[in-house]
Write a protein that binds this DNA or RNA. Sequence first.
DNA 1: ACCATAGAGGACTAAAATGGTACCCAATTC
DNA 2: GAATTGGGTACCATTTTAGTCCTCTATGGT
Lengths: 155, 155
Amino acid sequence: MMKLSRLTDYAAVVMAQIARQPQQPHAAAELAEAVKLPHPTVSKTLKMLVKAGLLESQRGAQGGYRLARPAHEITAIDIITAIEGPVAMTECSQSDGDCDLLDTCGVADNWQRVSLAVRTLLDSVTLAHLAQTAPIKLPVRLPIQSIDLGATADT
Amino acid sequence: MMKLSRLTDYAAVVMAQIARQPQQPHAAAELAEAVKLPHPTVSKTLKMLVKAGLLESQRGAQGGYRLARPAHEITAIDIITAIEGPVAMTECSQSDGDCDLLDTCGVADNWQRVSLAVRTLLDSVTLAHLAQTAPIKLPVRLPIQSIDLGATADT
DNA sequence: ACCATAGAGGACTAAAATGGTACCCAATTC
DNA sequence: GAATTGGGTACCATTTTAGTCCTCTATGGT
């Protein structure tokens, strides 16, 4: 279903929560409470986000988590990648090599392009966007026509 | 990783294979051979594609599978949906109801829009595109600016 | 009519990813 | 130095995914 994992979902929610008050540090417990999720799970998520460099942490009393960068410099793809690893629709769209069906497949290259388009899209959505409580506007149709998926035989 | 499941991958490859010779029926065994995948697995995939209405099947001798519609009328999303069910990035982006965190979440609506954008993108890629052995061209950047994800809040 | 071919449908199993929890250690602050 | 708060790891339960197999039904050829 192409879904994000639940943890990624949590991550987004938690990040948004932090983004709404970027000045003060947020303790894991506080966030868990705010978001109504089990503390250990939130904690785990936060750690992953720190590892990915999206959050900074401060230990000790009065410690907590803060955004490592302004919300508008953190993108959806950053968050997804932090939790799930590289975004790629197929095995072969992330790196080369692994797929031994490349010959018979005949589709790999095109999937990679689609993958890229998805990544680009995801990269254009920032945490600042996501954190807006008021729904963002997103006109239903992308001007996809501009994607030259058209039958261009040659290069 | 937002990956497609392996079966979906197979489905795409097999569909492409059929699309390249749309006139004749293709037996599961033949396709499995062509694509170098185990017969039962390919068979299973094909059945799913038939159920989804993307392929038509003919039983008996000289039978096999054929596209139910011209390749350019079958989209990536059709194939993905056939195997994995509805494409949605989060639980709540597919239907309403299931998520009991909607209040605290504050991100749901925005994810849904992103989801929609991804779906639209995927909908613009047809089987005809995928089936081209020559790689399709896809200029790296989508004109994402036109997506009014623009900030309504601060900044 | 009968047989060979080819798909339909479903059940079942094995394996892997995911989600969740617990435990103990390290750093800060008061 | 005690309380607070994050860091790291290891572990377990559950769910998903993938793959296989078996039997039934439809079609075409002889």
